[in-house]
Design a protein around this nucleic acid. Structure first.
Lengths: 335, 335
DNA sequence: CCGTACACTGGGACCGGTTCCAATCGCTAC
DNA sequence: GTAGCGATTGGAACCGGTCCCAGTGTACGG
C-alpha cells in the first residue's frame, strides 16, 4: 500500500528524478535505465499519487460541471457527453447540481479557484455580473453550454430559431392562434432558453401578420403538471389556441395530457410541439425541435481542454444545428 | 493569486503552525493571536489549498460514484440524492458513468485507490470476485446501492418482494396468465434487480397455483422499444397474457404502446405494471412499485461517511421500504 | 527566590511528486 | 593528451499544507 516514487527509485537503483523523467516520458533517459525503471514500476505495481502530482504541477486534472436540475433529461444528456469526453481525456469530473439559489451562490463563490479545478463547464445557467467578474479574476478557463454571456466561450443552439421553426411549421399547417408555454424567465436559476424560444415564436407569428396576445403565453416552472394547468386554463378560455408551442418535451407532455382532460384530441383539435427530442417525444409522437444535447457536452469539453492547454479558444459563440422533427402531434387545425 | 498560509503567518506575525492551528480550530491558541490570524485570513481572502491539505492529511475529501447508464431516470434520481448529501458534507463527488464493459473494467482497475478517493459508492452494479478482491485489498470504504454482494454494505430494496407485490395485485384482480418483461441478467453490466423481480413474480404465480411458462418471460435490453417488441410477440401469440409485470416504468411504457398497436386497451384487455414510480408512471397512470430512489442515495452517503470516519458500519444490508402504487393500468381481466 | 507545570508558539520534517542545476561520463576534435 | 560538448543522472528545492517537538514565558507552590 502506498508505493512511492522513492521505492521505485531504490529498486531500480536510480534517483527519484530519473523515475519522474521516465514517468513523464521525457527525453534524455538512457534506454537501459528506462527499462530498469519500467521493470521496477511494474514489479511494484506503482501508480503515481495524483494528489502529490497536482500539488507539484499546480494543476488539478479536474473539471467542474455546474448544472441546474439534474432532474431534467436534457441536462443529463449533456452531462453524459461531458462525462464521456472528460473520461477519455484523463480528467476527473466533479459535479455540482444546482437546485436552489443558495447552492448557486455557494458554488459560484467557492468553486472558481485555480487550485481547485482546471476548468469550469456551466450548463444552462447564465452567469451574472458578479459571477462573471469572479471567474474572470481567477482566469479560470470556462465554457458555457446552453447559456449566454458575451464575454465567455459558449456552445449553444439558436433557441430563437427553434421557436420560429416550430411556429412556422404550425402556421404553414394553417394555424392562426398559436400559444406558447414555457419556463419562468426571471428566477435566479432562469433558463434563458425558454425566453429565447418565446422570442422566436413571437417573431414567426408577427411575421405572418397574426398576434400573440398575453393570454396565449403561459409561463410556469418546468414541470409536466404546471404545463398541464396552464394549458387547461388556455384551452377552456373564450378564445382557445389551436396549437401550442412548448419550451420542452416535458411541458408538451403535460399539454397533451391536459388536452385529453378537456376533451380535445391531438392533433385532431389541438396541435402541440415540444423541444429537445427526448425519448419521450418519440414515445408520444411529438413534433419537436431536435438539438444535439450529448454533442453539446462533447464540444464543451473539447473547447475547454483547448483553453486549459492555452490554445486559441476559437469563436466565442459556437452554434449547433437544430432541426424540426415532425411526428403525429401536429396537423392542420380543425375546420 | 494563490495566497498561502505563509502569507497569512507573515501578515499576522505568527508562525505557520499557528495559522494551521487556527484554521483547524485546535485548542491552545491564545484568543488574541487567534483574532490576529483570523483578521489576516480575512484581509488576504485566504482559502487553504485543498490539494496541499490532501497530500498532507492523506485524505482526498472526495467520493467516487460509479453508476451505469446515466440515461436511466432511476439512476439519476439516486445520483441526486448522493450529490445533495455529499455536498452538504463538504465532499467532492467524482462521477463515473459506465456504459460499456471496457469502461467498467477500467474504472474498477484505476479507481479503488485510497490516494484517489476516500470512498466508493457503486450504484446498480454488483462487483464480481476480482473487483471485490481489489476493493477489499485497498480497504477503501464502499457502499453499494441497488446492488448486491454479501461482503459489502449495501442499501437495497427488496426486489423479490416488489415483483411479488405487483403480481399478487394482478392475481387478486383475477389474472391467471401473468407475464414478465425485464432486463437481460447476464450482461457484464447486468442489473440484478430485474432478475430478482422475476423471482418474485414467479413466487407469487406459483403460490397461487398458476404457471409461468417460458413464453411469458420476455428478456431484452432496457429500452421502451425493446420492451414493446417483446410485448408484441407475446400478445400476438396463441395464448397471450392478460397482464404483464415489467421490471421498470420505462419498459412498461413500451408495453402500453405495444398494446395499443395490437389493438388492446389498458387496462381493459391488458393490465400492465411498472417499477420505480417515475414521473412517467404518474403521467401514464401506471400501477407501479415505488421505491425511494433519492433516499437511497442519501442513505448510501450517510453510511459511507460513517465508514470513512471509522465508525461502525451498521447492518451490512439495509433494506428500504417499497410500496405498490395502484393507478389506472391495472383492472380485472376481460371476461 | 526558585523549580515546575502549563499555555502557547515557532519552525523543521514530512506528504509524494516535478524540475532545475550541477556533476559525471564518454566521445570527438584538435 | 586534453579541452569541449552533449547525453545522462542524482539530488536539492519546491508545491502548500499538517503535526510534532522543543523552547519561551508566566503563574504558582513550596
Amino acid at each position: 500500500m502506498g508505493v512511492t516514487i522513492t521505492d521505485v527509485a531504490r529498486l531500480a537503483g536510480v534517483g527519484r528524478g530519473t523515475v519522474s523523467r521516465v514517468l513523464n516520458e521525457r527525453a534524455n533517459v538512457d534506454p537501459a535505465t528506462r527499462a530498469r525503471v519500467l521493470a521496477a514500476i511494474k514489479s511494484l505495481d506503482f501508480v503515481p499519487n495524483q494528489t502529490a502530482r497536482r500539488l507539484s504541477l499546480r494543476r488539478t486534472q479536474t473539471v467542474a460541471v455546474i448544472l441546474p436540475f439534474l432532474t431534467r433529461p436534457s441536462a443529463v444528456e449533456r452531462l453524459r457527453g461531458i462525462e464521456l469526453t472528460l473520461a477519455a481525456s484523463g480528467y476527473d469530473m466533479i459535479v455540482f447540481n444546482v437546485e436552489t439559489v443558495e447552492r448557486r451562490d455557494a458554488v459560484f463563490r467557492d468553486l472558481p479557484r485555480p487550485e481547485r479545478v482546471d476548468g469550469l463547464i456551466i450548463v444552462s445557467l447564465s452567469p451574472h455580473a458578479a459571477e462573471l467578474e469572479r471567474i474572470q479574476r481567477t482566469g479560470l478557463p470556462t465554457v458555457l453550454v446552453d447559456a449566454h454571456h458575451r464575454a465567455l466561450p459558449r456552445v449553444v443552439a439558436d433557441d430563437v430559431l427553434g421557436g420560429r421553426l416550430a411556429t412556422q411549421h404550425l402556421i404553414s399547417l394553417g394555424h392562426r392562434r398559436v400559444a406558447f408555454i414555457g419556463d419562468i424567465p426571471r428566477t435566479p436559476l432562469a433558463f434563458t432558453s425558454s425566453r429565447l424560444r418565446l422570442t422566436g415564436v413571437r417573431q414567426a407569428i408577427l411575421a405572418s401578420g397574426y398576434r400573440l396576445p398575453a393570454s396565449l403565453v403561459g409561463i410556469g416552472d418546468h414541470s409536466r403538471r404546471r404545463a398541464a394547468e396552464l394549458a387547461t386554463r388556455m384551452l377552456t378560455s373564450a378564445l382557445p389556441p389551436t396549437a401550442i408551442v412548448c419550451a420542452s418535451d416535458t411541458q408538451a407532455a403535460g399539454v397533451v395530457e391536459a388536452a385529453g382532460h378537456v376533451g380535445l384530441t391531438v392533433p385532431g383539435t389541438l396541435s402541440v410541439t415540444g423541444y429537445d427530442d427526448l425519448d419521450l417525444a418519440d414515445h408520444l409522437g411529438l413534433t419537436t425541435i431536435r438539438q444535439p444535447l450529448f454533442e453539446s457536452g462533447v464540444r464543451a469539453v473539447q473547447r475547454l481542454l483547448q483553453a486549459v492547454d492555452g490554445l486559441a479558444p476559437g469563436p466565442l459563440r459556437e452554434v449547433q444545428d437544430i432541426s424540426l422533427v415532425i411526428r403525429r402531434s401536429t396537423a392542420p387545425p380543425a375546420v
